[in-house]
Write a protein that binds this DNA or RNA. Sequence first.
RNA 1: GCGGGUGUGGCGGAAUUGGUAGACGCGCUAGACUUAGGAUCUAGUGCCGCGAGGCGUGGGGGUUCGAGUCCCUCCACCCGCACCA
Length: 950
Amino acid sequence: MEYNTRDIEIKWQKYWKENKTYKTDIDPARPKYYILDMFPYPSGAGLHVGHPLGYIASDIMSRYKRHNGYQVLHPMGYDAFGLPAEQYALQTGVHPAISTQKNIDRYREQLSNLGFDYDWSRELATCDPDYYKWTQWIFIQWFNHYYCIETDKARPIADLVIEFEKSGNTHSTAFGSQDISKFSAEEWKAMTEKEKSDLLMNYRIAYRKTSYVNWCPALGTVLANDEVKDGLSERGGHPVERKPMLQWSLRISAYAERLLRDLEHLDWTDSLKSMQRNWIGKSTGAMIRFRLDGHEGEIEVFTTRPDTVFGATFMVLAPEHPLVETITTTDRRTRVAAYQKKAASLSERDRQAGVDNVSGEFTGAYAIHPITHKKIPVWISDYVLMDYGTGAIMAVPSDDDRDHRFATYFEIEIIPVVDKTDKDPERHRIINSEFLNGLTVKEGKSKIIEELEKREIGERKVKFKLRDAIFSRQRYWGEPIPILYDKDGIPHAMHTSDLPLELPDLDDFKPGADGRSPLSKNKEWVNAIKEFTRETDTMPGFAGSSWYFLRYMDPRNKTAFASSEAIKYWRDVDLYIGGTEHAVGHLIYARFCHKFLYDIGKVVSDEPFKKLINQGMIQGVIESVYLDKRSQNPGRFVCSGIADKEGEEHFTRILIHVDFVKNYGAKDSYISSESIEQFLEWNPSFKNAVFECSGGIYQNGNFTPHPGSSANDSHLLTHSEVGKMSKSKYNVINPDEVIEQYGTDCFRMYEMFLGPIEQSKPWDTQGIDGVSKFLRKFRDLFFKEGNFQLSDAQPTKEANVVLHQTIKRVREDIERFSFNTCVSHFMVATNELRKLGADQRSILEPLIVLISPFAPHLAEELWHLAGNEDTVTVVSYPEYDEAVLKKDEIVYPVAINGKKRTEITFPFDAEKQVIEESVIRNEIVLKWKDDKQIKRVIVVPGKMINVVVG
RNA sequence: GCGGGUGUGGCGGAAUUGGUAGACGCGCUAGACUUAGGAUCUAGUGCCGCGAGGCGUGGGGGUUCGAGUCCCUCCACCCGCACCA
């Protein structure tokens, strides 16, 4: 009987679907295991072979846990709002809801094809009103809460109002935007509603403030950061400017400390944690205020090295700093203005490019050093950034590279304040610093902060790089923000009972006036409620994806985002598998969102993802051919060897579809005449081109060998490099095609066999035959002359050892996510059992269960052929018996001076001394000893023996 | 520049805590069965050497009876951040 993979796979996929094999529910009698795949965006391109890598791993884990008695939650859904669908709508007029649904259907089909054990009854999409109702609900909670520094959690904004009514903000512990001056209870009560609303905006977790957007006047729209390249729109290359707009933001910065601190307990990779730490960017230091000489006001600076304050010999303001206008002396105005203008005209990129050039301008003004009271000059320079810190620094040229370069260039005084003669920085001593002299840097820091606070010229300060997230998008295809503005422009959250606020239908997705959302054009919707207008911005992509893992717990709940029973049972995600591309975006937002919900008592854990594994990328091979830039029509393509010889600068590379290239990805990848024909059919603009390789020339369907060459076909070497697998690189490998040829089980096992899950590697079909052969051999263990046949005979000892050995290894390797080695263990077992001719049910049946997480279709087929009625997916995973693995004898490798020279077999329980005595009489040992002395014999019981001679 | 990671045969990769380096697969070589083989099976396959043997985990040094694994140092590549005060 032939092993017809596709028939078997389709049969069992149908069976699982009909029998709802993977449906899961709360079961207090079992431990839970929640395993999550990163939320895919259903793009029009469908899945390529890189996407399933993580899905296969999580599927194996999920099945393994189910075999081990866990109640497994392994869901799938779609991050379905987003820009691509809207852009597609702009181009084609197809409604995003329609194209998105089509893409989702395609994704579901491809995913089902891979045999994953998702509980499809929990499938969800963020663009579904039943889903985004709760996204909007969460937004309203954000709007109605503020962050209390004292209790270190979010609290209702109503509490803050009560506090203000009682005592104003004089004792307020609310985390707010800066610059809120103190007010009393009376002052609060005297405020108008509008004033109160504006003031509370400084505290709400979801709040409105002016932020800058990438405004493209030519397109009449606001662009996302990745739609802007070098200050121009990616589409059309129109200029983009920064435009201030009132936008919703999330006060995620209030959670910075907790987001940082709680990383510690997470089982994530170091690199991922460090990326998050980096992003949060905590720095501890001091705020120091410098008075100005002859001006009101002061310059406030933040420094991480307050201990070097005595070395501050000048100050630098960002060119955009508001103080520049007031302090610049008349004689300096022209030069300063010119510098400001130059700095403003430079793009971020140009400013970065000029990092090495020292530039700046003296304002003519002086600040007073807060401790020495010396006058120090105030400069401006673009190495100080307006949006970092306070936009001003105290420059300490002795201990900061950039300050040092600046001081040297402009000949400003440098006062060394730290004695760095000791190599160990811990022992560096402070000098030239009055009361700090002799202290270490660390001691100096606390001492100076103490002094600053005592003298009221500064204080300890912790700063974070993490910025609040802008939550408004001037787009159609996103969740509407459930806010109504009254006639005074005061925002009111909708009643949660009125949710969802559905996205109205539009047939025109072009932006509204002044870059407003397309929704603004639907006046009926905007003004649907008397005396109110609706917010027309929509939410960003991360809104729906920041909490989706909670919805899976109870996806059809009508009265809550999930029932408290479901939340208590499933708690958090035990294992999250996904790519690093979400390291700082999604993973920070989701953690923030989860912590907020924890604060308000809606979830029971303070972190959403306990363990996270980053799958590597499967890259593609990018193939290209050299085209001679000097050649006119028809073009001249040459072999990479010729291009090398003539000089690469004369050539440009034209991408070629990998399917046309022989041995693609290999060093000797080339195109034959046949490939050239395929290429020309695909890219007819080169129809008459010349293709020259070392053996001859191909043109217009004919190959002409060079004189004296024996070549009879084109062998034009192509250029290969490893890169992203993408439609635009013509190198996408579709899993459906691989599955059609080899079967799903083979595809799954091959992707795992490729190497460790976290490693990136290029897709390469070279090895897939090996896995395919293995699966066939594995299956053949169960067949005799074409018939399924198992014997009920007692297993041989050898076969039993193989079985238990394999169980042990596979179990251990799954536990440590080493799936590639699991596959080899199965191969080893198959090879050995074949040699032994093992056909016993007691050996082979456990093996079916063992392989089931990896090759679920084949396992289910064999399980039923073996006479079992129910699905294999819930059968207990085999346990190994240590007693079976216990050997009577151990073959010891014997090394002389660390080099293995022979092997000697001893009984399992041989005494050390007996071994030693025997070893020193061993022929081979004696031979190697020669005329030297045996100094020592090291016996590691059960492992090895080392004889030291000399 | 800073932070994180990775370097093992022709290739993908094994070697869980310091204990037989190269499991398993691909590729390659030879053979068998074949009209044929891009099917299947058998054997071999780290490098040098006829051999005994020597050399081998990016380079150099160290600790140890013993190092791919631990320490120091240098190099290469990949990822992230980057005038971050």
